[in-house]
Design a protein around this nucleic acid. Structure first.
Lengths: 201, 201
DNA sequence: GAAATAATCAACTCACTGTTCAATAAATAC
DNA sequence: GTATTTATTGAACAGTGAGTTGATTATTTC
């Protein structure tokens, strides 16, 4: 009756997850089969079904983990001061931590961003923004009355944009450091895309 | 030897496309089968294979059509004057036309935005921006030297953000008119998300 | 070392795939 | 309108993967 997981389970799940990532990169999620996963992970196909209902369940569980990790990092936003917020949108330290997480799990993130994972992650970020920034009535939040456009569209705009940049960074081979990426993203969001583009120089 | 398509082919393809849209909304693209499509479209399953290699081919061809339509509308940007550009990023008329297209094909667009279609459309918009705005050396283009951040990230940011807002609009049931949406989108992009949010009021 | 449990292996049913071919229906061409 | 061409149908086919089961083996935990 120990809370720690049997080593065999851990090893099997890790092998399955690694196989999933490799196969998504190889042929895309729709085209891969449970049989493919079993072969790539060097496990019996029946073993897969001891842990997951089907390949969709596997993707869902994998996504859940990423969402949890992301939420944990992002919710540190509560600790920031108003001054920081007005200057840099979200603290650069938080953004950097997020990019470090994406950096450490690059293959996984890149793989799930080309599945419905993109939609799931964008939706989660949007929800967090709406809940923690546009809704709450604290010092850090933005008053709804001050909004010049509906907050749902603002949240969708920013959330979607951010993951677009993350994906571009991963696709280009992560040439910039996490800190540089945080700087770029905050720069665009803080100044606005067109000012950052130098249109009004 | 006529260039026009046999009426039967047109009807069959339209039925297949409509079935695809309905089924994506119903159970998602990964989970739907060719058999599902044939039943929903009221055609023989063998007929499907007379027109498409498999369901992936169907999605690809459907996406190609949307990409072509979008490109046709967007490339009218070439006709705009520099003054218009500096004032509204892309002409409001173009943005409105795009939203009208999305409005007329709402089910289709909403269905493909939850497949890899999101990635395909964002990538296309990004490419068009890089080619027509950041790369060219004409009056309308933005000089690369003036950029404060790499243009690939700017393009990814804006392209991704725009389709995020389109998806939000579709998911919320298209409460705003195409013109209002064009206004909102241009407002955010032109002023920057945080100014539009009233942070600096 | 003993008990518990995870992984394996083989077998099986089921559903969907992708293809074929003869028969039929509907379009186009004259 | 009739003839010709062509799309669609229907049925049958082998092939592949899904998901499950039960007995057996291997590994881990206590």
């Amino acid at each position: 009756m120990n809370s720690t997981e049997d080593r065999r389970i851990t090893r099997t799940k890790e092998a399955i997850c690694a196989a999933l990532v490799a196969l998504i990169e190889e042929k895309g999620f729709e085209a891969l089969s449970v049989k493919d996963i079993a072969i790539k992970a060097n496990i019996n196909r029946g073993t897969f079904y001891l842990h997951y209902k089907d390949k969709f369940d596997l993707l869902d569980q994998t996504l859940d983990q990423v969402v949890q990790d992301m939420e944990r990092i992002l919710l540190e936003i509560r600790l920031v001061s108003v001054a920081d917020f007005k200057e840099t949108w979200i603290p650069k330290a938080i953004a950097t931590k997020l990019f470090e997480y994406f950096n450490d799990n690059a293959s996984l993130i890149q793989a799930i961003l080309v599945t419905k994972g993109n939609f799931v992650l964008v939706t989660k970020l949007k929800q967090l923004m709406l809940k923690n920034i546009f809704e709450k009535d604290e010092a850090i939040s933005i008053k709804k009355e001050k909004l010049l456009v509906p907050c749902e569209y603002l949240a969708s705009y920013i959330a979607s944009a951010h993951f677009g940049v993350v994906q571009e960074w991963l696709d280009r081979g992560r040439r910039e450091t996490p800190e540089e990426m945080a700087e770029i993203l905050l720069n665009i969001t803080f100044r606005g895309p067109l000012v950052a583009a130098g249109v009004f120089s």
